[in-house]
Simulated assay, not measured.
Amino acid sequence: MTTRILLVEDDPTTSAFLAAAAQGVPAEVDVAESCAAALALAGDRDRHDLWLIDANLPDGDGAGLLAALRARGLRAIALAHTAATEPATLAALREAGFREVLVKPMPASTLQAAVRNVIGLRVSEAAPLAFHADALEAAWDDAAALAALNGERAHVDALRKLFLDELPGACNSVHAAAHAGDADALRAALHRLRASCGFVGAVRMAAAVAALQQAPQSTQALARFLQAAQETLSSAPVPDEA
C-alpha cells in the first residue's frame, strides 16, 4: 500500500522540493501551507501515515500544530523540518513529540531515508547537503543543487525558476522588516529564505542570509544581502536546451 504523507510548509520552493523528494519514497503527498490548511486536510480520522511539519508557519508553529492533531486522536508518525540548527531548538521539537527533526536544506535522499526509516524500511544514512568549496565565491553551486535532487537537472531548473520568481518578494519582506525594526518579521523572512537557497544552490544568497541572521541590526549585512540578491537574480543559470 502506498504511503500517504501530509507535508506542511509555507515556502513555495521548499515545499516543491520536499514534495518531489517525498513522492520518490514512493508516497502520495498532500501539501498544506499553514496550520489551518493542515488541520483541514488531516480531518478527524487517520488519513495519513506520516506528517512532515515545518517548525515555523505563518499562523502558528509545528509543535502547536502537532498538539492540535494529536488532540483529535490522530496517530500518524510526525517528523519536523526546520532551517534552525541550534541544539536547544531541535531538542524542543523532539520533546514536543516529533519522532525526528530534519534540518533544511538537505538532499532528497536524506528526506527519503528518514521517511523509509520511520515506516519500517531499512536504509543507509544519507550524507548531508553541503556547498562545494570551489563554488563558495560564485552565485550558484550547480553541483550542490544536483546532489540535492539526485542529479535531476530538470528538477533543478524548475525549482530555480520558482525560487527566482519568489526572491524579489522575499527580499522586499526582509528590507521592510529591517527598516521597521521588526525583529520577529525579519527573523521569519530570513528563516524561510535560508532553506530554499540551499535547495537550489544559491550559495552567495545563502551566505548573505546567514550573515544577516547573525547581525540583524547591521546596515552593512543588510546591504550585502540586497547586493547578493541582485547578483543572484542577474546571474541565474540558463536551463539547457532540450
Rank of each mutant, 00 (worst) to 15 (best):
D240F: 15
Q112K: 02
R72A: 12
Q214G: 14
A189K: 01
G198W: 00
A126K: 02
T232M: 11
H191D: 15
P58F: 06
E33W: 08
R224F: 06
A139M: 06
A228Y: 02
A37F: 05
L129E: 05
L162S: 02
L79A: 04
L167S: 03
P87T: 10
L162I: 07
H132C: 12
G151K: 14
V25G: 04
L226E: 07
V156G: 05
S34A: 10
D142Q: 15
A139L: 09
R72D: 08
L233C: 08
A236R: 09
T232S: 12
L66W: 01
A78Y: 01
D11K: 07
P12K: 07
T13D: 04
R224E: 12
L6R: 02
V29D: 01
R72Q: 06
G120R: 12
T219Y: 13
L190N: 01
S218H: 06
L52R: 00
L167W: 02
C35Q: 04
R116F: 02
L79G: 02
A32C: 12
V101I: 15
A40R: 15
L50R: 00
L111A: 00
S34N: 12
A176T: 12
E125T: 09
V29Y: 00
G201T: 06
A206Y: 04
H179I: 14
A180C: 12
R192M: 13
V174A: 12
R72I: 14
